[in-house]
Design a protein around this nucleic acid. Structure first.
Length: 271
DNA sequence: AAAAGCCCCTGGATGC
DNA sequence: TGCATCCAGGGGCTTT
């Protein structure tokens, strides 16, 4: 579910409200992707300093150590002041002096992992291979071009892998490639610099607009304050196979790349 | 080293 | 109404 815009929307919806809170209790439900990495009781009494984002991970900084959260495919957070009843798929809940943070995740591909401050292990394992943040100045055309030059795989899959640039998932990869006029199957190394520049601009534009729209809500995504996204109504190609391209009216095509669906316009996107 | 496949899990939509 | 099949915003791990 959540790509960079959804994760960032989530962060913005509770970061300031939880900052400064003291953890009162932690409740675990069914197993997520990985074990928490410490006894839940160890977190009690710690203070939440703030919430950062790295790629699709949320990093909750504590006065001692940090929690790394991932929403997987179906996860969403809520942060409410009153004590919420536990729902069927609430697999992590953290009661604090300022509210309760709950991870609801039906498919349980998500994760909550504790890392000690000096623990270079789990943090670097999870975050170590991540590419550049697309909405920062570090993401420039030169660096992007250099990164793509080293990849022979299809550009769509290079984007999804997140080792060159992070945060671009299945929806926004298709959308950005459409906006840049690039066929998803083009080997990354073969993209000319002007095309890379167009893709660079398209990624920033799409992610920025999705952020402004509160992300995309396909099934049940909502921010930690319960707001649904509405970017799904603005997609040019995603989930529109067989429907007319909004630019040229040719039917949008669907193909599978690495067990994921890719959507593109055969007319507007050149090989 | 990089690329391609496999798998984790639940639920909703679709087809018979 | 029931059951079988396929598909879904991700990504780590194993195999080529």
């Amino acid at each position: 579910m959540p790509e960079l815009p959804e994760v960032e929307v989530t962060r913005l919806s509770f970061a300031s409200r939880i900052a400064g809170a003291r953890i009162l209790s932690v409740r675990m439900g069914k197993a997520l992707r990985w074990p928490l990495g410490c006894a839940p009781a160890l977190l009690v009494g710690r203070i939440v300093l703030g919430v950062r984002r790295r790629g699709k991970y949320l990093l909750i900084d504590l006065d001692q150590g940090l929690l790394m959260l991932h929403l997987g495919m179906s996860g969403s957070l809520s942060f409410v002041a009153d004590l919420p009843a536990s729902g069927k798929h609430d697999h992590f809940a953290m009661l604090t002096t300022q509210g309760t943070l709950t991870l609801n995740d039906p498919r349980r591909f998500g994760a909550v992992v504790y890392a000690d401050a000096q623990d270079t292990g789990s943090a670097s394992t999870l975050l170590g291979r991540l590419g550049v943040e697309p909405l920062t100045d570090d993401f420039d055309v030169d660096r992007f071009h250099a990164g793509l030059k080293r990849r022979k795989a299809a550009i769509k899959q290079v984007l999804l892998a997140g080792e060159v640039v992070v945060g671009v998932g299945n929806i926004y990869a298709s959308e950005a490639l459409f906006q840049a006029g690039i066929r998803p199957t083009v080997p990354a190394e073969r993209l000319s610099r002007p095309r890379v520049a167009r893709l660079h601009a398209a990624i920033r534009d799409i992610l920025g607009r999705a952020l402004t729209s509160g992300g995309s809500t396909l099934r049940n995504f909502s921010s930690a304050s319960g707001e649904k996204g509405h970017f799904q109504f603005e997609t040019m190609v995603y989930a529109r196979q067989g429907e007319p391209c909004r630019v040229c009216a040719r039917p949008i095509k669907l193909l599978r790349q690495g067990q994921r669906s890719t959507f593109y316009c055969p007319q507007c996107q050149k090989p």
